[in-house]
Design a binder for these strands. Sequence first.
DNA 1: AACTCGGGGGG
DNA 2: CCCCCAGAGTT
Length: 302
Amino acid sequence: MTPLDEQDEHVRLFRSAVLRFYSRHRRDLPWRRSQDAYHILVSEVMLQQTQVNRVIPKYERFLARFPTVHVLASARLRDVVRAWIGLGYNSRGLRLWRCAKIIAQRHGGVVPDDVEQLRALPGIGTYTACAIASFAYGKPHPAIDTNVRRVLSRVLFGRDSVSAAVLRRAAARVFPARAARRWCQALMDVAALHCRSSPRCEGCPALMTCRFAPKVARALPRRPSGSAAPRKAAFAGSPRFFRGRIIRILSGVGSMPVARLLSEAKDGSPKAEGARIASLVDDLRREGLLRIDRRRRRVWLP
DNA sequence: AACTCGGGGGG
DNA sequence: CCCCCAGAGTT
């Protein structure tokens, strides 16, 4: 048996173990019950940098409120933003709304199945485009997110991470074209249930073929706990904190005086000068999340 | 390549 | 208190 054959055999074992694991133990997630590409689109945007458990209730509420692309496309941004509260990264909601408008106007209300066309939509990057093409349409595009990256890096290279180029080649080599729709979701379940940031190897389907597992036993220190830690800024009082507050305040009213928004936003935060908050409001206006009538000095969500 | 964008739950 | 989490867009 040549080394190449050996390697191929190794990959086959890995693949079949992961797919078998998926058929038995896969998580029952709401967006996996649907084949509707719009549902997949909504779930994937919500899942950008946001945990599954927090997305589930928002996802179901969102689709009950905006059941189709057309409903979302003709909705008011304010209603979209209100449905988005609690998910964070509000501009994702804005971009999803713009996505729906483009899909309704230029794609006949059908979410594209082509990766390039998907990539061209606002808020859809490489990962999300591949995820939609693959999960909704069964097209053979590896959707490489942090989970897939971590599992493949560990199993194939015995490291927590490898360079993007190396990983891309490895992902393509391992990718089973016949199981395109399931493969990456299977890897995500392996990541969520076993190959977590801090690994739980017991019961992992990749255990036998994993180059990382042997290293896990000797526990890693896991904490430099060093003196020179850069020390992160507090969340309260940060730009993110105030942006979130501004959006939350505005989502509850039709429109309001700019001055009142500023005072309500900094309420209870004496450190925040009005000028700083005003500049955050202007950032939000530039991004398209809110509108300002300078003459009448009023602000609102479109 | 480095930053910014929310918010919550867990170690 | 720090870290992580189905990333994308801008500079």
